[in-house]
């Protein structure tokens, strides 16, 4: 999968996260993290995002995260939705899950 445009998913409500995935000017996964729980969970959130991008086979992207205390599973869901949108792909490959 390749990021070809900007994709956004999620909300700024409590327990949710808004994630923007866009093309990267450099290489690698560049994470911009703003979280109300960054001091305690910042490292874990970055780890979750890196692992999910690896699973989605994305090596170059900027991931902007505005977290309002989302669970890991919510972060994964919003990241995946934003990434599919950024890749311009409408249907998730459920067969691979």
């Amino acid at each position: 999968m390749r990021v070809v445009k900007t994709g956004i998913a999620g909300t700024l409500e409590s327990s949710d996260v808004m994630i923007t995935v866009s093309e990267n000017t450099s290489t690698g996964i560049n994470i911009e993290l703003h979280s109300i729980v960054e001091k305690q969970f910042g490292k874990q959130i970055r780890k979750v995002i890196k692992e999910k991008m690896e699973e989605l086979d994305i090596s170059d992207a900027t991931v902007s995260v505005n977290d309002k205390g989302a669970l890991d599973c919510t972060i994964c869901a919003r990241l995946e939705a934003a990434t599919y949108r950024a890749a311009g792909i409408k249907h998730v490959r459920w067969e691979e899950k």
């Binding site: 890991d72 599973c73 919510t74 869901a77 995946e80 939705a81 899950k97």
Partner: peptide
């Protein structure tokens, strides 16, 4: 619709 589907999928698989 796509985002909600992923949210429920991940919640049911995890929580």
């Amino acid at each position: 619709k796509d985002s909600a589907r992923l949210l429920i999928f991940n919640a049911l698989k995890t929580l």
